[in-house]
């Protein structure tokens, strides 16, 4: 059994959050540069130029890329041969979130669902973090993090389709979601699609699909083909950067698929804005 110190986790996660808030990952920058070069609309091209200039300012001057520094979302793979010493893993991640957000001047965005009161002085600064745990073999902890903004979350949708809908039904639903979202989710987007499993499994998969590097190829050739087909279809919508009209509405489509019940075809679409702030550490 390998022991990992509570404080080591706190310090690693804090660094991950702070770094991610002002440094857009390389996969996102490369995808935005490619989109700017290929975009046909001069207005959208200019918006993409501003987005890339913003990422340079943020990184150089250590400023948050966006004022919506998100809810802190984590996918954590815990090796079964790991023991956390001095506290629990969940507490370490929450403590790191509160400290990183507060000390790096990131926005505390968690609030009560009905009173809308900000929870920074009651529950904690931008707490609770949204944490998805998974148990795996081994003696390491792998922590993936993303700052998930509200604008793109607001247009995300899930549905359970009849099985006969098939791939065409999936494509139609995704198209409806992105079309209806229009300019609101801050395109150009990454579209995460969770297929199969149960109602909630599809949705968690659609979230996790957004953590994959933009431009990476799906290892499942059938899904890779479907991703390309949906990407091409979505870029016909004409929404463009920030909805100004253009040919680059979506940067990438990422699909995660699961076996599902013989009666159902769950589909979830989780939308990610152009400021795709994600990263991971392994301890």
């Amino acid at each position: 059994m390998r022991e990992i110190n509570f404080n080591e986790i706190v310090s690693g996660v804090k660094h991950l959050i702070t770094y991610t808030s002002s440094n857009l990952p390389k996969d996102a920058i490369d995808a935005l540069e490619k989109a700017m070069n290929e975009e046909k609309s001069p207005v959208s091209k200019e918006i993409l130029r501003q987005i890339l200039e913003n990422s340079q300012i943020a990184s150089k001057e250590f400023r948050p890329l966006c004022q919506d520094t998100g809810l802190a979302v984590f996918f954590v793979k815990v090796g079964e041969d790991v023991k956390v010493k001095g506290g629990t893993l969940k507490n370490a991640i929450n403590q790191a979130t509160a400290e990183a957000y507060k000390e790096s001047y990131l926005r505390a965005s968690t609030c009560h669902p009905f009173t809308r009161a900000n929870l920074q002085n009651s529950v904690g600064y931008n707490l609770p973090a949204i944490i998805h745990f998974d148990l795996v073999e081994g003696d390491k902890i792998e922590i993936e993090y993303a700052a998930k903004g509200g604008g793109s979350e607001n247009v995300s949708r899930a549905i359970v389709l009849p099985p006969a809908s098939g791939k065409d039904g999936v494509m139609k639903f995704v198209r409806e979601v992105v079309s209806k979202g229009g300019s609101n989710p801050c395109p150009p987007l990454t579209v995460g699609i969770g297929i199969g499993g149960t109602f909630e499994r599809a949705t968690i998969s659609s979230k996790h699909a957004l953590f994959r590097d933009i431009g990476s190829v799906n290892p499942d050739p059938e899904l890779a083909e479907l991703e390309n087909k949906i990407l091409e279809d979505l870029n016909k919508l004409g929404i463009g950067a920030m909805g100004m009209g253009g040919t680059k509405t979506v940067l990438a489509v990422h699909i995660e698929s699961n076996p599902c019940h013989i009666a159902s075809l769950p589909v979830s679409v989780n939308v990610q804005c152009h400021s795709s702030r994600h990263g991971h550490i392994t301890i």
Partner: peptide
């Protein structure tokens, strides 16, 4: 008016 969403560092300046 529309301002560029996600350009918070640039606009903050």
């Amino acid at each position: 008016f529309g301002a560029t969403g996600g350009a918070g560092a640039l606009l903050g300046k």
